[in-house]
Amino acid sequence: MTRWSVAFGAIASREVLRFVHQRERFLAALVRPLVWLLVFAAGFRAALGLAITPPYQTYIPYETYILPGLCGMILLFNGMQSSLSLVYDRETGSMRLLLTAPLPRGFLLFAKLCGATFIGILQVYAFLGIAAAFGVDAPAWGYLAVLPALVLAGLMLGALGLALSSFIKQLENFAGVMNFVIFPMFFLSSALYPLWKMAESSRLLHDICLANPFTHAVELIRFALYLQWNGWALLWTGLATVAFMALALWGYDPARGLVRRKG
């Protein structure tokens, strides 16, 4: 093994180890989407009739519609959670330890991002398993086909968290991230309602949803879960991943001074 792969393995597995130590976090990560799936969706099932729209080939119950959106929600929360842990790392000093390792900073951050994405994907599969046990399922091969989509969506949302963490000065500001990033990103997307439904009520909101990279991450997951290709969603999610990663690298640029604000 080269020194790069040794370091990559250590950084990524530390993220996983940290997650394993936080059982409550795993529980919370599962309870949140399950409440949406089993309570919220049950209530809205009667109110929302969903016409046939790709990738679905038949009328579908609302639970089936929001399943991919809730996978996206898990990855979104996971991305923000890892952002929170990065801010915490910076305050405790373990970020200094990481950034003084003799490897390129972009590589160190990417390794951390991969660890966080892996954790997110584990949570998604646990959620999909429980959902299937409750009868909300997808084609069998879809569970495999969705993996690359989950990896890309996880990287995109993790990179967003990474970028945000470089701009959040203190842990206390994290509530602002919830209000100004997670909620708008989730609600202004196709996670809970199809975009054509949104267009019926407001053209502007529809356009905002369409520009939201989270919409495309959810659509990428949705199509992959039903074994269909969505090149546009793939392109948009990929571009957003690159943009967020570039923003994160800029945020952590030593010439800008990551810890400068902390002295």
Partner: peptide, 17 residues
């Protein structure tokens, strides 16, 4: 939350050992 050895191993790996 990591053991003493895990802490040391993590650092050693960061330096490619």
């Amino acid at each position: 939350d990591l053991s003493v050895r895990q802490n040391l191993r993590y650092f050693a790996a960061l330096h490619g050992l």
